[in-house]
Computed example of a mutant assay.
Amino acid sequence: MRLVSVAAVAANGVIGDDGAVPWPPLPADVEQYRARVADAPVVLGRRTFDSMREDLPGTHQIVVSRRLETLTEPTAVVAADAEEALALASERASDDVAYVLGGATIYELFQPFVDEMALSHVDGQYDGDARYPSWDPDEWTVAAETAYEGFTVREWHRTTRPDRPG
């Protein structure tokens, strides 16, 4: 299974501020993001999941949480850690791909296991309390790039296969 991290990231690494994005709305980014993850399982933290309950992304939501045990949404399951989340994603990935959707702690937790990153590089720098994790540029290459008004989507591929638990 390919594991792909998907995020919108300002030029200074900020991805959020107090649970929201700090830049003006980018409808084209939301559209391309939703289309990308529509047919795959997604891995996300509880707060990110809660913020999306009205319009859940992906076919299955794997919520990483040490506090929750079950969820009422029929497409959602709880995973206690990265190993369990990766196993659940692998079981549910019909196209052999799963996506990591955040927040910041989840991105950091899964960064060592990610094969690809689909990052919307938002124009400008913004203040915020959440950042995308840093990565070694020597381990990554840009495989594709698409410019939009206000942001550019870059698809990064890891040059070496990551080690995964299990």
Rank of each mutant, 00 (worst) to 15 (best):
T72N: 14
P25V: 14
Y33M: 10
R46G: 10
P112W: 01
S51C: 11
Y132F: 08
T105Y: 11
W135Y: 14
V43A: 00
E116A: 11
G13I: 08
A7V: 03
E83I: 02
L119H: 08
R164G: 12
E145T: 05
A98E: 04
A38G: 13
E69C: 11
T159E: 00
T152I: 00
V4L: 07
V21H: 12
A40W: 08
V114P: 09
Y107M: 08
V114Q: 09
I15W: 04
G102D: 00
E31C: 05
A147S: 13
T48E: 02
D55A: 10
H157E: 08
F151Q: 10
T59D: 01
P133H: 05
L86G: 07
M1R: 08
P133C: 05
D29V: 02
E139Y: 01
G45T: 05
A104V: 08
E149Y: 09
G102I: 00
D81M: 08
V6M: 09
R53D: 13
R34A: 14
E108Y: 14
R158C: 03
R67L: 12
D138L: 07
I106A: 02
D81T: 09
R67D: 14
P24Y: 02
A7M: 03
T75V: 11
Y126S: 01
V97F: 06
R131K: 13
V100P: 04
W135G: 09
I106H: 02
I15G: 05
V42H: 07
D138W: 01
D129V: 04
G103C: 01
Y126E: 01
P25Y: 14
F49E: 05
S94F: 09
F113K: 10
E108T: 15
L26C: 14
W156G: 12
R53F: 14
A20T: 04
A143T: 14
A8E: 01
F110P: 06
Q111Y: 05
Y126N: 02
D39L: 07
E31W: 07
V153F: 04
V100H: 03
W140V: 04
A79N: 00
V9I: 13
L119Y: 07
